[in-house]
């Protein structure tokens, strides 16, 4: 029984979007859809700071599905298309089952991590990029970060984790103290997004 999780080092992340693009490329994510995004904690548009008493402030935070231990989305899906895989702790989405009711999107507190394919998925190229075993994207269903479960199953690394230029991303089995993510968490202060929601996310942010 593993519990996969992520740790993102906010001291290191500079919003270069390598993770965003690695995910996009590996999972052949359609145009207009992003499974993980770089958010700027600063001004009103990406990459600008805001003025504070202590000077200009800008930080970056990457947010995708938090793969919660107590997921709000799983509770409400009427057909069980979204479910938590007990063996890995990953919250998965079955495109073929999804009826497109978008209840999960209303239930998830993490604004924007779930994406609905409002039209037939479009791609810039006429062939699929990335891994061949990525489930095909479907119109009118919900999708989100899959924690690259199909790569993990083969013993490979999730796309966004392969190489963060800043080495700010860590992942692994949260229950294994020797895993990269556990080691990253040890001895560092960390925070989580919206902990008061009680969803127990598996993503940690090292502050």
């Amino acid at each position: 029984m593993t519990h996969y999780g992520m740790a993102i080092d906010m001291q290191r992340c500079v919003g270069c979007n390598a993770c965003t693009i690695a995910c996009k490329s590996t999972n052949n994510v359609p145009e207009g859809v992003f499974w993980t995004r770089v958010h700027t904690d600063g001004g009103d548009v990406p990459d600008v700071p805001r003025e504070t008493a202590g000077g200009l402030y800008m930080n970056y935070i990457t947010i995708g599905c938090q793969h919660c231990e107590n997921p709000a989305c799983v509770k409400v899906c009427p057909v069980g298309a979204t479910y938590r895989d007990e063996a890995t702790g990953i919250v998965r989405q079955d495109y073929d089952k999804c009826i497109g009711c978008r209840m999960c999107m209303a239930a998830c507190p993490y604004t924007g991590v779930r994406s609905f394919n409002w039209e037939e998925p479009k791609y810039a190229m006429d062939f699929a990029t990335g891994d061949i075993d990525v489930p095909k994207h479907e119109k009118h269903v919900v999708e989100k970060c899959t924690f690259c479960y199909q790569r993990i199953a083969k013993g490979e690394v999730p796309a966004c984790m392969e190489l963060c230029p800043a080495r700010a991303r860590h992942w692994g089995d949260l229950d294994d103290p020797e895993s990269d993510v556990s080691k990253a968490l040890a001895g560092r202060e960390y925070a989580q997004l919206l902990p008061e929601m009680g969803t127990k996310p598996s993503v940690y942010y090292l502050v």
Partner: peptide
């Protein structure tokens, strides 16, 4: 279909592996 950072020889991976957008 995909580019990624090549895995290098062990001694180099921490410092020399690189890729960007």
């Amino acid at each position: 279909v995909r580019t990624s950072a090549a895995v290098l020889e062990e001694q180099d991976n921490a410092d020399q592996r690189r890729i960007c957008v």
